[in-house]
Structures are given as C-alpha cells and as structure tokens.
Design a protein around this nucleic acid. Sequence first.
DNA 1: TTGTAGGCGTTATCAG
DNA 2: CTGATAACGCCTACAA
Lengths: 350, 350
Amino acid sequence: MRASITDVAGRAGVSTATVSRALRGLPHVSEATRERVLRAAEELSYSVSPHAAGLASGRTGTVGVVLPFVNRWFYGQVLAGIDAVLRAHDLDLLLHNLGDARVHRRFFTRMPLRRRVDGLIVLNLPLSAPETEALASMGVPVTVLGSRIPGFGGVCIDNRAGAATAVRHLINLGHRRIGMITGAPDDPRGFATPIARREAYRATLTEAGIVPDSELEARGHAGIEEGAAAMARLLSLPDPPTAVFAESDQMAFGALRTLRRMGLRAPADVSVIGFDDHETSELLDLTTIGQPVARQGELLARQIIGALAGRGEEPGHTVVPTRLVIRGTTGPVRTARPSSRRPPEALTPP
Amino acid sequence: MRASITDVAGRAGVSTATVSRALRGLPHVSEATRERVLRAAEELSYSVSPHAAGLASGRTGTVGVVLPFVNRWFYGQVLAGIDAVLRAHDLDLLLHNLGDARVHRRFFTRMPLRRRVDGLIVLNLPLSAPETEALASMGVPVTVLGSRIPGFGGVCIDNRAGAATAVRHLINLGHRRIGMITGAPDDPRGFATPIARREAYRATLTEAGIVPDSELEARGHAGIEEGAAAMARLLSLPDPPTAVFAESDQMAFGALRTLRRMGLRAPADVSVIGFDDHETSELLDLTTIGQPVARQGELLARQIIGALAGRGEEPGHTVVPTRLVIRGTTGPVRTARPSSRRPPEALTPP
DNA sequence: TTGTAGGCGTTATCAG
DNA sequence: CTGATAACGCCTACAA
C-alpha cells in the first residue's frame, strides 16, 4: 500500500497537520521539524493524494482547456504557450477537445469539467448566451480566446484590422478585382473569425471605392482541399480576380496548389495573401497577416493564474497585434489589364 | 453551495447509497427509484465530485498523456486519435508536455501524475531503465508509442523497414550517391527514431553494395531550418549526393527550400524523400514514407482502455504499417552523371 | 431492492 | 510552533 500522511507523521514523530504544513511550505513550522518531515516523506517516497487534497481544500491544481481541434497547427501552438506557463506554476492541464457539434452540445449539457478544474481556458469557440451562462456557473475563472465576453478574461487579435490590412495591401498594389476565399462564416455555430474577416474584406473594398462583388467570395470549410476548390471556382469566373485574400494560410495553400496545377503563378498571374503566418508559409513564400500564436496561449494562462491568485478584480482583455508579412505571393497588378475574356496564353506558364 | 449526494438523496427520498448506484447505472435499482433519483439530481443540477469519488473508489477517470512536443503536426494528430477514443469512453485526458530535458528529469523525479491517472500513454519518449521502473511503480497500465517495453503496452511503426524502403526507392531509381539528413541521433536522451532510421539507411546502402559515406550524413535538430542548413552542407560537398533521404518530412521541407533558393530542382537536380507523410507534403509534392498517425493514437487509447477493463493479461504490442508514397520529388538519376566537380550551369534553373 | 456506517487522505480551524 | 479533530463528498461492504 502507498504511504499516507499518517505514515509520514508517525515516522517524523509529529502530527499530520504539521506534515501537511511542512510539505506545502507554509509558515509556522520550525526548520528542524520541516527537515524531519521532508526526510520522512522522502524515505517513504510519499506523495500527496490529489483527490484527498482536492476534497479537503476545494482546489484541484488543474486548468481545463477546451478547444475545437487539437490537430491543427494553430491550436498546437496555443497549447504549447498555455502549457509552458501552467507548468511553471505547477498546474495540470486537462485537455477537452470539442470536435464536432455533437460533442460540443454534450459538453454544455453535462459540464464534465465542473469541479474538475480551478480555471477554464476556452479557445475560439462560439458561445451562445446559455453556454456562457453555463460556464460562468462553474464558479471558476474563465478566459476565452477570440472573443470578448463580460465577466470572462480574454485574448484576441483584431481580425477586422488584420483583414483590412491584407485587403489594403492588395489595393495598394493596384488590384481592384479582389476575391476572397472564406472559411465557414455560415457555420450554424457561428464562429466569429470567419465572419469578422469577411466583413472587414467587404468594408475595406467599399472604403476604397470598390463595390464588393459577391461572386468573388468563394466559400468552403477550412482546409487545404477546400481552399483549392474555392480558388478553382474563382478562376473559372468569366472575369476572375487578379488577387485573392484567403481567410487562413491553410486555405491559401490550397489556392496556391490550384494555381500551380493550372499552370498559373503567384503573383505573376494572381496575387495571394493569407492569414496566420503558419509555419509552412515561409516555406511557400506566402504573403500573410501574422499573429503571435503561442504568445496568445501564454497570455491566456497568465490571466487564469492572475485570477486564481487574484483579488477578484474584473478580468482583463488583451488584444495582441497582427502584422503584415510581405513575401513573394503578392505583387503589382499586371499593367496590361486583361479583358474580361482573358487571353488563353495567360493561362499557360511563362 | 453546490448540491451534494445527500441533498439528492433527501430530495429523492432514498439513501445516498441508492443515489450513488442509480447515478452510475449499477444494477439492483428499481426503475422507479432510478427515475426519481435522476430527476432529483437534474433538479438540483447535481454533479458528482470527482475528488470525493476518486478518494473513495481509487479511480480517477483520467488518462495521462506524456509527450515531448505539443506544437508539432505529428503529436497533434496522435493526440486527436487518443482524444477521440478516450472521449467515447468518458475518460478525461490530462496532458503533460515534457518540453526540454529539464522538465523531463523533473517529471521522473517528482512523478506528478502519480495517483492522478488511471492509465498513462507515453509518446515517443526515450525511457531509461530507472524511468521505466518509475512509471511501472505508478501501478497503472502504461502504453508507449515508439518502443517496445516489457510489461507495457505499445504501438509503433517499423522505422527500419520504412527507412529501408525509402533508401531502396532511391537506389531503384539509379542513385548511388545518396545522402541523409538526420535529426538528432546524438541527443543525450537517445530518441529511438533517429537512430533506427539512420541505421537502416546505412544498412540498406551496404546491402546494395554501396559503401556508406559519413560525409553524406548531415545532422541537425528536427525542424525546417535545420533541414535547410543540412541540405546546404550536403550541396557544398565536392561530390554532392544526387538523392537525399530526410529523417522527417519537416526536414525535407527545409531541404526543398534550400534547393529552390539555390536555383536547383527536385528531382531534376536532386531527388528528395521524407518520412511521415505530413499534411503539407502533398502540397509540396514530396515523395515520402507514410504512416497512419492518428490511428496510432487510437490504438494507444484502446490498449489503455483494454487494460483498464482487462483481466491483467500481458499487454499487447501493435506494429502499424508504413507505405511508400511516391510523388514528384524523386526521379531517376541524371543519365549524364555529373563529374565530381559539377558544372556551374547545373546550378542555375532551367 | 435498499439502507447503514465506516473509511478514503487531506486540509483547516481551533486550542494549546 | 504544534496537535486534535471536524469536515470534504462519495463509495462499498454488510446488513436488513
């Protein structure tokens, strides 16, 4: 059987209360006693039972992370950031992947993390009012990535600003016919990011005196394949765009693949800009809007830790900056503007 | 205050024991009683305290996952596989990232997961004898990815076979001067994968009557940058390789980047083959050795679940197959074999 | 089928 | 500075 606090107490010749204090580094324990306790614990290779400790103290030493995907670059980076900070504070990380909408619903009806965590980090999940309410009812600090919710801490980027910068970059290069490859702004769950980026796209065009053309918005779910298909659709238009803003780098990758397969090149034939600065983007020389991903994870974890230690102040909200990363897939619009019926030779590689 | 089992018992007019049984779906509870209990619990929005339950039962309902990186494609995929299976069995997933060697050491001296988990999944970590011992002493089923350890369950691919296939593919294409970009076979921790792949590389060359040339082994730590640097070194040799086997797709990406920057092309100038079938590999048209990554995660989780339910049989070990994925970066060796001093025109793009 | 009661291993509150 | 001791919330023989 595993040694318990009573065993340690016996061996050290003190009470269990003293063992508890000594082991947790609390004050009011003489150095000599502490020494003795530590040695006894060592000799018995004692370790506290998290359950017993949790039951008695009400704390769990665990932070929950809820996210929609574990197998995407973005979330891996965020997770790494969170993990680093949590680890430094000796907090465990309980991962809860919400995959599809069914699991998502189930999570909010059953609240499986209730009483399991001291704090909760929610990554990029759209939260309905009752869902927000449910989280709040857990009675632990909550911090969310990607949206601003009263009562919760938060970290996000300014999607509108980032998308606007992307589109403006294209406009500055002389493009007027600018398409967008958009993720799933129509997903019933209502993810905020696709919506914000698309709206900024439209608004920026309008500001520049360009009338948004809904034909130039190609939709698909996030993913390389979907990005590729979307680009194919854009290119098949009678008057295709000369530049394309993809909602994410992943979708931009697909777009680039389509271009290459059709014998076209970026930016010679079509300029392409993405969003995220994915690790592969540099490799593909993709112009994009960069955001500090792991950093956001760190900030989220820090907020939770602050709230845990904190004096119940209203949780803060941090907006982290994005930046335009100019690489090789965007360039000036062709000076010889193609007619609406693009000459066939433009479709073959130079 | 949160409702406890006593409250539910009171409201349902039964004892706490009955509540416990009813809620866990145990037999020997009349349908009527169960109904009543369920309703009472619902009305009080009761949820069991995992701590109290754990303390009393000794079970945690949690499986620990220990891994060296969270922010790499490979581990994200594995994690997704694990998560799917665990979730289906209502088990929580406690993530423990071991990052650098310091954290790694600390983990094994303090055993922070002791008593926190019902089972443990270890991903690709090299385990010394005492470390293995320490894990075994946790008294829960352990399953490891990437190595075979007596007493533990395991899942792995045949790295030697995979690497041999890669090298043989190059040999079949007529290459004789074949380089390898290798990860960190010299890491003091002794990761198994790099070692196995490098040894298979050498052995396969030897079998084909080619004498391995240590000059053709370029080392670096895993990563795109390192792969790029390694390729640069290979190309600067007086007699550079005509084909290169990269330990991982990531490193192969770096290699491709170097080629492109130097105005060379694969496979026209140098053939490149990787290992993993990373999601980006298709995009880059990289020939590679594919392995079912998420699948391995599922298998690991299933092993743990089997052990949890199991009758203490010796845990099994599963080897999953790899396969050669031929894409566009490998091709026949140039028939006009370049002299050891490669003509400068070959260095400019066609 | 249901109830009783002891115990799980700590923490925290009081005294001393 | 240290020691009793009452929670903490649930599970599980055992008894009824």
